[in-house]
Design a binder for these strands. Structure first.
Lengths: 205, 205
DNA sequence: GCTTTTACCGACCACTCGGTTTGTTGCTTT
DNA sequence: AAAGCAACAAACCGAGTGGTCGGTAAAAGC
């Protein structure tokens, strides 16, 4: 058991550093040696724990990437309050951490999707699954909001979810440029504008 | 002169094939040899015309990529008609060609931005310039629309432009998945919803 | 105390990459 | 016809790549 702990600790260290470098430099632009150098570990250690670089990356997806998306984008929108508020706040906070992160290279998930798209179907499968989970959660949050009278009954929740995901992926791609906080501010203002248009119209003005 | 024509023809062929492969496989994942093999040309030919792979890519950006963005996203929104209509139609058509392109790997520009982001500032500069041109054109189209009474005077045109670009980049990243035409349909429906919210409110209902 | 298992080392392999060097060909110019 | 040069061809270089493999030290199991 104690032995297993050490094993898991080493593997976890590798994955954390791996994700960091893959995010920073891209998967194909990061060599296994790069990761190992950072950790002062050897090739032997790496291939003792993982079958291949690809296998290693898949473990990173399942262990780290999925959790990040969950804690950042899925858990915050769970609940029975106003979904418009939940999603706005969630996006606002996700963008805020991006603004304050001086090492920001865009949205982890969409960066990898860009990189593997049409090049590695196996990995794309895993990435698309995460996207799907996010989408499903958004849809159900919106539908709940419809049921609870927050969202207009004519709204197509699946379309709205796609639209929200699109805009988020896009703004995160744009935000890596200069003045990310201005970007965020502008984006959020228009997101709220859009939300206003799908909210239940108040009878009293 | 005749000589110069041949030179330019060869260079153009290289650039067209280069862009094709860079788009398909990514810049770092496409070797110079890959491009040359496709054209049955040699390394000597390549380095006779270009200083480096990077220099080659910059020429592609300036010759081909800029023009594609212009003809696809900038020229179609020029004019004095309703900007909401212009932009809707422009996006619709851009997405439609993506739907019918069986070799679609997402939005050329944003794919490259993803790939070079934080890794190659020199190339990023060129890509951001294109993005900036697009943004400026969107802003001026929206402002013209405001002046002509199509768009509500309270709308922040720069914010709206960022929001539009974001959503476009995002949907093009998502569309590489299955069922792009459903994606497009859903996206366009919500884009129109958003547009409705920034249009001048009609006094008569 | 002895054996087995585990975690890890580091040299090495075949291969790929961007880029260089040296040749070759054919058209132009004088 | 000789010389010159642009446009390519082909062999090559050195750095880096993912992955292999024989070995080792230490802990676990008996």
């Amino acid at each position: 058991m104690d032995k297993n702990l050490k094993r898991m600790a080493t593997m976890h260290r590798m994955q954390v550093t791996g994700l960091e470098l893959f995010y920073k430099n891209g998967y194909y632009n990061t060599s296994v040696d790069d990761i190992l150098k950072e950790l002062s570990l050897s090739k032997g250690a790496f291939y003792h724990h993982y079958d291949s670089k690809e296998d290693f990356f898949i473990e990173i997806i399942q262990n780290l990437l999925v959790r990040k998306v969950y804690s950042m984008l899925i858990e915050p929108i769970e609940g029975h309050e106003n979904p418009v508020e939940l999603i706005s706040t969630c996006f606002e906070e996700a963008l805020e951490t991006a603004v304050h992160n001086e090492m920001d290279f865009g949205f982890l998930l969409s960066n990898f999707i860009c990189e593997f798209n049409g090049r590695n179907p196996k990995i794309m499968k895993y990435l698309n699954d995460i996207l799907k989970i996010w989408e499903v959660n958004l849809v159900s949050t919106l539908q709940k909001g419809k049921f609870n009278g927050y969202i207009d009954r004519h709204v197509d929740c699946e379309a709205a979810a796609i639209y929200l995901i699109s805009s988020f992926i896009g703004i995160r791609t744009l935000m890596v440029e200069a003045s990310p906080s201005a970007m965020k501010y502008r984006f959020m203002s228009q997101l709220r504008q859009y939300f206003k248009s799908i909210e239940t119209r108040q009878t009293a003005v």
